[in-house]
């Protein structure tokens, strides 16, 4: 439990700092980090219940997509401001580095297994984003429909 708490603080700091490095406006920085933490939390919760890093990345990406969209509407900035820093704890950067290091050192089979992980995680994250977009669009449709019904009455 303590380790998860420490990791959440770590994710918060990492997301905030990545936001500073890619020059996010100060007024959106805190919300960026919150979106990152929410994404990482859904990754952790998914791992506790189902296990597996691919479905975890998918769940995390959905959470980042949905919460990022909510945050973007609240702050009136593009979603990308929240989704790119929020991805930092999920993104397969460490594995991408392992692929290249192992290829250069001649451990080809290890490199291939890491490459597999990179492709799977990147695909899962991209699919998660598409799914989040779907959720938002369905929500918008329902909202519109309810408004129309109210107008008719």
């Amino acid at each position: 439990m303590l380790s998860i708490f420490i990791k959440i603080i770590g994710v918060y700091i990492a997301t905030l700092c990545f936001g500073i490095l890619i020059n996010v406006q100060p007024r959106s920085l805190n919300l960026c980090a919150v979106v990152g933490v929410l994404g990482y939390l859904s990754y952790v919760v998914n791992n506790m219940i189902f296990g597996g890093y691919i479905s975890g990345s998918f769940a995390g990406a959905i959470a980042i997509g949905v919460f990022g969209m909510i945050a973007a509407r609240y702050k009136k900035t593009p979603v990308i401001v929240f989704s790119i820093p929020g991805l930092v704890p999920l993104v397969p950067g460490g594995q991408a580095y392992q692929v290249m290091k192992n290829i250069a050192l001649g451990n080809t089979s290890l490199a291939l297994s890491y490459l597999n992980q990179v492709m799977m995680i990147a695909g899962a994250i991209a699919l998660g984003f598409l799914f989040a977009e779907l959720i938002i669009q369905v929500y918008n449709r329902i909202e519109k429909y309810i408004k129309l019904k109210k107008l008719e009455q």
Binding site: P92, G93, A96, A122, I125
Partner: peptide, 10 residues
Amino acid sequence: VPGVQITNAV
């Protein structure tokens, strides 16, 4: 590390 670029590419 270009992790975000990889995800953006996909």
